[in-house]
Design a protein around this nucleic acid. Sequence first.
DNA 1: GCCAATGATATCCTAAAATATATCAAATCG
DNA 2: CGATTTGATATATTTTAGGATATCATTGGC
Lengths: 91, 91
Amino acid sequence: MSSAIEHLTKTIKAARQRSHLSQRALGRKVGMPQAQISKIENAAVDPKISTLVALARAVDLELTLVPRTDSPRFNAVDSPHPPEKEGLSPR
Amino acid sequence: MSSAIEHLTKTIKAARQRSHLSQRALGRKVGMPQAQISKIENAAVDPKISTLVALARAVDLELTLVPRTDSPRFNAVDSPHPPEKEGLSPR
DNA sequence: GCCAATGATATCCTAAAATATATCAAATCG
DNA sequence: CGATTTGATATATTTTAGGATATCATTGGC
């Protein structure tokens, strides 16, 4: 997958976990099956924008466009938690 | 359409025009038929993320996620009206 | 006036996302 | 331990974006 997309979905996943929502809980909130959320978080699909916007909002994020040439000044929600070293396989 | 999406596509359209690209030219650049770009700019479809990312990049924009609760500090290419006096110059 | 460029639309077709369900293994907990 | 929760995965069906093309009205030059 495009990596840019993975980045977006990873950010949403991190936000979901931060807010202590399970995939099912988030799914309920947004009206989407848990299975779909799993696929999205694992970058197994190329979601529609409306889908990403809905998920983002459910975890208090907003999809925006910023200048690309300009330095990554105030980027996004990036760096979920600082450095964090190696390891940690989820699940 | 979702309005949030319209906002994103409008932003891209504005950027396209700013860079003096016709829909056909942008289409060539991204490898997508002019007709599709028209549909997207007119919010007649709900594009896939990869599509929006490609278009955005072609006009030097990047799709990002920002906190929604937080004030719209340094938003995007947005700025309906420039800097506007009020404190906080984005910097 | 003529012609090229531009954007909107339409059709047909294919690919892929989304929905609905259902499992299932691995954690988590009481 | 057994029960529940969680996330990954699978299959079948529906829906829709995207690709390829073509047309057409409008606009802008020349």
